[in-house]
Amino acid sequence: MALAAPAAHARAEATYRPQANRLGLWLFFLSETFLFSAMISARFVTSGTDTPEHLNQPLALGITIVLLLSSISAYLSENAIAHDDRAGFIRYTRITIFLGLVFTAGVVLEWQEALADFPAGTIYGSAFFALIGLHAFHVVTGIMALGVVLNLGGKGHYGSEDYWPVEGTVKYWHLVDLMWVVIYPSLYLF
């Protein structure tokens, strides 16, 4: 026994790693959902369903559609790498990042208008900037994560048997979209 390798693991990591990764990611999503719920409930408690007169509705609908499109391309990129289609993976990930950047630019544009119409010191403005800011933070971190997997995927990492980082990142990107599904009507439509 003493001759056994000192750093030997009693159990092969492969027996639990896929399950652990997936469960861990979903637990993180559950936790994130509570963060967004807290912020969204703050919006309804302080300002009800009131919305100001000067909301750029077409722009908001536009960035919503852009985010939805980015979700499709993220889905397609995960699907591509799952079938060893590296070129497709790179193409769709680039599109996703591009659409994410367009969304971010849309938010910046919107904030410039919004600051004039309802500054952060108004009650709707508080909720608007906090909630969209929180969401935009997630968009930006999502773009960073997509950049990481794009870079590594381009260098030959990942394949149909081994694409967890892509799957996790894409799921995170879908979470960003999922939160927007609730935030968009909460801030603009209700």
Partner: peptide, 30 residues
């Protein structure tokens, strides 16, 4: 795992009220 987010969120709002001029908890701003 889940409820800690509420403390984080409430302190984020306090921080925004202090630093960014939002008015989540200030009665004067509604």
């Amino acid at each position: 795992l889940v409820i800690t987010q509420f403390f984080a969120a409430s302190l984020v709002l306090i921080h925004l009220d202090r630093v960014a001029g939002t008015t989540f908890f200030g009665a004067a701003g509604g």
